[in-house]
Nucleic acid binder design. Structure first.
Length: 359
DNA sequence: AATACGGGGGA
DNA sequence: TCCCCAGTATT
């Protein structure tokens, strides 16, 4: 065992959080936790893990779920392709591996949504095989302590990280070592303003010695943020006590694929309602649109990583039955059934603020 | 090799 | 309000 791993694991044993997926060697639970934790903080993912494991305790149960159910339980976590891939992989495991999780790195890579990081995490944590994980925490810890100055989003920089991670790996306890590395990055060697005075590596940390803690890891790429305007139409129809509204299932190569929102017109700038009405696509999915504009929302902003969405909601109460003429992704839904549908955060927030749709 | 894909937390 | 975070699939 290297001195580094010895110190790291000693720190881990003192500071580790108790988390449900740390009480098990069940590869299903470990896989599920790793998919949830991709791009997601533990505090945010924890309750999702518990709900998933409660609802689908094993890979067979999950494989029988519908995509809509899985997306609905995933709602709010973001990166929804993870949820779709989760279901696809569960079915892969059942169909191709008799429901037994593969314990081989290369086989795990065949599963949708499982890349190098997740494959290494599963084989090391569930099967104690020596594969070093490399995630954002590991990159930060290694680049700071050992002074990797090349940008980590380049081949050169990443090769150095990989070589270092492989060298340092504790091959007797790769699962513990990997978890300790990530926990250390998550709790001690945090992105901004880490508490270096109380760090077990502060006598050997390159970044601390050369005052580079705020500089490392170096990243070369910067994202450009585009701005999009969503003009949503909440179209309702009242039939006795039943209030129905039109939902749109998103299917394009775009954000929120598989999630539901409303019919809308998108533009690159703000547009007045009078202009929207003239748009050729305005309500072109309804036969005989006969409506009353009953409310117009404030402008909502929704910040994503590389786009900023400005949304306004127009409430259109139809005076006659809504008849959908194009069999695209639209459907007429009873508003009491709304909680069956996976909704993007923006939509969910608006509906909650509204305290439900009324016709 | 470059780009797209959500949402939450902290400065 | 803006800035930061970061695995995988696709192109």
């Amino acid at each position: 065992m290297t001195q580094f791993s010895y110190q790291l694991i000693a720190w881990y044993n003192q500071n580790r959080r108790e988390l449900p997926w740390r009480d098990t060697t069940d590869p299903y639970a470990i896989w599920l936790s790793e998919i949830i934790l991709q791009q997601t903080r533990v505090v945010q993912g924890l309750s999702y893990f518990q709900r998933f494991i409660m609802k689908w305790p094993d890979v067979f149960r999950l494989s029988e779920a519908s995509e809509q159910e899985v997306l609905r339980l995933w709602q709010g976590l973001g990166y929804y392709s993870r949820a779709r891939n989760l279901l696809a992989s569960a079915r892969q495991v059942v169909n191709d591996f008799d429901g037994v999780f593969p314990n081989d790195y290369k086989q795990l890579l065949q599963l949708k949504g499982v890349g190098k990081y997740t494959a290494a995490a599963i084989v090391s944590i569930a099967f104690n095989k020596p594969h070093a994980v490399i995630d954002g925490n590991v990159i930060r810890v290694l680049s700071r302590i050992f002074g990797i100055h090349d940008p980590v989003d380049t081949t050169s920089g990443m090769n150095q990280i990989e070589e270092l991670a492989d060298t340092l790996l504790n091959i007797k306890n790769p699962g513990i070592h990997n978890q300790a590395m990530m926990e250390f990055g998550a709790l001690q060697c945090i992105p901004v303003s880490p508490d270096c005075r109380n760090c077990v590596f502060n006598d050997q940390c390159h970044a601390l010695k050369f005052n580079l803690v705020q500089v490392l890891p170096v990243k070369s790429k910067k994202v450009k943020i585009s701005q999009r305007y969503f003009h949503y139409f909440i179209c309702t129809e009242a039939k006795g006590k039943i209030c129905s509204l039109v939902l749109n299932k998103r299917s394009d190569q775009d954000i929120w694929k598989g999630m539901y929102d409303f019919p809308m017109i998108e533009s690159t700038k703000e547009i007045q309602f009078e202009e929207l009405q003239k748009d050729t696509s305005f309500l072109n999915w309804a036969s005989n649109p006969d409506y009353t504009l009953t409310a117009v929302s404030d402008l909502f902003t929704h910040q994503l990583t590389h786009q900023k969405i400005f949304a306004r909601f127009y409430h259109l109460r139809f005076n006659t039955d809504i008849i959908l003429i194009s069999k695209n992704d639209l459907s007429l839904v009873d508003n009491s059934k709304l909680d069956l549908f996976p909704l993007p955060r923006l939509i969910d927030r608006y509906l909650n603020k509204l305290n439900g749709i009324n016709c």
